[in-house]
Write a protein that binds this DNA or RNA. Structure first.
Length: 421
RNA sequence: GUGGCUGUAGCUCAGUUAGGUAGAGCACCGCGUUGUGGUCGCGGCGGUCGCGGGUUCAAAUCCCGUCAGCCACCCCA
């Protein structure tokens, strides 16, 4: 009886070598950039109390329709995090750090029960930063600039930065009223879907891509025309900062982000190298009311999340950020069995070399093929003659040095010399 | 969640139109050197044709269902 075969769940995949090394390298680049900019690392749990996310978006699909949630063995309502900002703010409120602004970076998997597609997975990975405790527009600039520099560091060139301000409580209500009135007047001309959206969150009608909505959206009142003096100045200061850094951006007055908590500065990074609908490689914004809604003191905050999986797809299209090399520096061939090869390989690794070896006592020809495929530049051959003489043969696999037999005790220094040259 | 396209060896795919009982290239293994890779030659392993059911003397091929991937919508990273 054959046992049933299993496969990974829908929308979830095994990232295998060398893609996995590449993904980790992306995170390493980000960690370095964020660390040098004064951001500490936060590793928060993948599971949170369901309430953490219910607070952040009653009209967002991410929270209302796509969340993996369940009751655990104690009967507690648990969610697998669909995003990380809410977790970070929960951690901020819980630990109440006193040295503000609190700047952290993070990385890790998130879960959304969506219909999968290239660049859209049910388990996906993001890197991001959050800053809590300051509403200085220069914080906005720093955050956005860090995202921009990150794409640059990966070699991405086909990224555009879209900027908008969603206003705050001083001006958004007036705008919402104007927008709602405008849309209600044209309600029956809107798509069915948009009519539903209109009832829940009029702002979101603006990012409909349905044809029948486009004419109405094009004429709709814009938030940027309703910004209060203070909010308008804040936005202008952010823009001036980006200009001072020569970071190109585009004002996108209909940019509305999916999470409800955004206020004032919002932005999105879109890849023009990605031809499918999933072309957003990052996004973020301010959420000045979120800490309070999670039980903390009123605290301004801003951050972004960048999609690692989509970034790598964009890198494939742009031909940038290749997989890191994983080849060993030296391969050990074992023609004699016994313990000589395991000891030699262990010593090489202890000495700091990337060292691998062959197994299974196959023919020398077969072992040479394995060594060749490994791309190791040097091969060490442990054969009967060598063993008897206390020697090892070193062979050049890529250059024209051929092979020579050296004393067993000289292997480490000899390899250092050859790899150093 | 809605609609559409696709699913044959580890990988990329042909074969599906006109049902007759499975192929190529690459990869892998072995031989050509009784201790030597990359090129070349020869040989070989490998598939319940996504899965389940139906029609038929006969199904990779036709029908139904189901699962998965992809595309658009939606959503968003």
């Amino acid at each position: 009886m054959a046992s049933p075969k299993f496969q990974s769940l829908r929308g979830m995949r095994d990232v295998m070598s060398p893609d996995a090394e590449r993904q980790r390298a992306v995170v390493d680049v980000f960690a370095d950039l964020a660390g040098r900019a004064g951001y500490g690392h936060l590793m928060s749990p993948i599971l949170e109390d369901l309430g953490v996310f219910l607070r952040v978006g009653e009209s967002t699909d991410v929270v209302t329709k796509e969340m993996y949630d369940f009751e655990d063995k104690d009967g507690q309502r648990i969610a697998m995090r669909p995003e990380l900002t809410a977790s970070v703010v929960r951690a901020f409120v819980q630990h109440n750090p006193t040295n503000l602004p609190w700047k952290i970076w993070y990385e890790g998997p998130q879960f959304r029960h969506e219909k999968p597609q290239a660049g859209r997975y049910r388990q996906f990975s993001q890197v991001g930063i959050e800053v809590l405790g300051s509403d200085d527009p220069h914080v906005d600039v720093e955050v956005i600039a860090l995202g921009w520099r990150f794409y640059e560091a990966l070699g991405m060139r086909q990224v555009s930065l879209l900027m908008n301000s969603l206003g705050d409580e001083s001006c958004r209500p007036a705008y919402l009223e104007a927008l709602t009135r405008y849309l209600l007047d044209r309600r029956t001309d809107l798509s069915e879907r948009s009519q539903e959206t209109l009832d829940k969150n009029p702002l979101r009608v603006l990012d409909s891509k349905r044809r029948e909505d486009q004419a109405i959206i094009a004429e709709a009142p814009l938030m940027v025309d309703f910004l209060s003096e203070e909010t308008g100045e804040h936005f202008a200061a952010v823009r001036a900062g980006l200009e001072a850094l020569s970071i190109p951006y585009e004002i996108s007055p209909r940019l509305v982000r999916g999470l409800d908590y955004y206020t004032r500065t919002t932005f999105e990074f879109a890849s023009t190298a990605l031809t499918n609908a999933q072309n957003a490689v990052g996004g973020g914004g301010r959420y000045d009311g979120l800490a309070e809604s999670l039980g903390g003191k009123p605290t301004p905050g801003i951050g972004f999340a960048l999609g690692v999986d989509r970034i790598l797809l964009a890198c494939d299209d742009e031909g940038c950020f290749p997989e890191p090399a994983t080849a060993p520096e030296v391969m050990v061939l074992d023609l004699v069995g016994g313990s000589e090869a395991i000891v030699l390989t262990d010593q090489l690794r202890e000495a700091g070399f990337r060292a691998d070896r062959t197994f299974d006592g196959r023919s020398m020809k077969a072992q040479m093929k394995v060594a060749d495929r490994s791309d190791a530049p040097w091969v060490l051959i442990v054969g009967e003659d060598e063993l008897a003489q206390g020697q090892v043969t070193i062979r050049d696999m890529q250059g024209d040095a051929g092979q020579t037999t050296i004393d067993r005790g000289d292997v480490i220094t000899e390899l250092k010399t050859r790899l150093g040259a």
